[in-house]
């Protein structure tokens, strides 16, 4: 993108991107730690995730403040305006994702009060695609990459499939032995949160889509766009 005549404006927009990238990195690390804490039955790690969540909340506030400032002082239009609006939406969505990571850490603490349970091994598999979605959606935002945003959007159906399959396993385990009901319930909640991470990442992809095209996201437009590019 060609530079603005006013340099400080470019710096502010860059700062907005930097903040969101940092939020994304922290959130991915939170997700990794939350899942790790379940597999390793590491209560300290889970508590760390819960307390670190505040950092991401604060970053969202900083994005809000900076975006508001840019709107008031620079009165952005066209692609600049769409970038600022997208930043507001995306930081909100990333913050939500971080909340899901903190939730997972809470279920981790509950699970650790119960005997160890082998179905926890399914979670690291289930989280893989949502993690890729977050990472790619944020790259799509930074690079204004429409193709990548659309790719991310389609990944969510994969998450849903894996989620349903995992639920089947948990139901089977509960039927096989009533003792499994307790840990399975915690895992159900954790899996649900992972599935929501996929949904939120899909929302980020939609915000990026709108930022680039200037049009509200509609699934029916996707087929057209997808085949065009």
């Amino acid at each position: 993108m060609i530079q603005h005549i006013v340099k400080a404006y470019d710096e502010e927009l860059k700062k907005l991107h930097d903040l969101i990238r940092y939020m994304g990195e922290l959130t991915l690390s939170q997700i990794n730690k939350a899942i790790q804490s379940i597999v390793d039955r590491d209560a300290e790690l889970a508590r760390e995730v819960i307390s670190e969540d505040q950092k991401i909340n604060l970053l969202e506030i900083r994005v809000d403040e900076l975006a508001t400032r840019i709107l008031a002082l620079r009165q952005p239009v066209a692609s600049d305006l769409r970038t600022v609006i997208a930043s507001l939406k995306i930081s909100n969505q990333v913050e939500r994702i971080a909340d899901y990571a903190a939730n997972i850490a809470k279920f981790s603490l509950n699970l650790q009060k119960l005997p160890s349970f082998e179905e926890v091994e399914g979670l690291p598999i289930l989280i893989e695609i949502p993690k890729q979605m977050i990472e790619s959606a944020l790259i799509a935002f930074e690079k204004a990459d429409l193709n990548l945003a659309i790719k991310v959007w389609h990944m969510d159906s994969e998450v849903d499939k894996l989620y349903k399959a995992y639920l089947q396993n948990l139901f089977a385990a509960m039927i096989a032995d009533p003792k499994n009901v307790n840990p399975c319930t915690q895992l159900l909640f954790a899996a649900k949160n992972i599935e929501r991470i996929g949904d939120q990442s899909q929302n980020i992809a939609e915000a990026v889509y709108t930022m680039i095209t200037g049009k509200p996201f509609q699934e029916s437009d996707l087929a057209k766009n997808g085949s065009k590019i």
Partner: peptide, 11 residues
Amino acid sequence: RTQGYITGRYG
């Protein structure tokens, strides 16, 4: 060119 002008960029 419109984009450049209204967003205040070098054209």
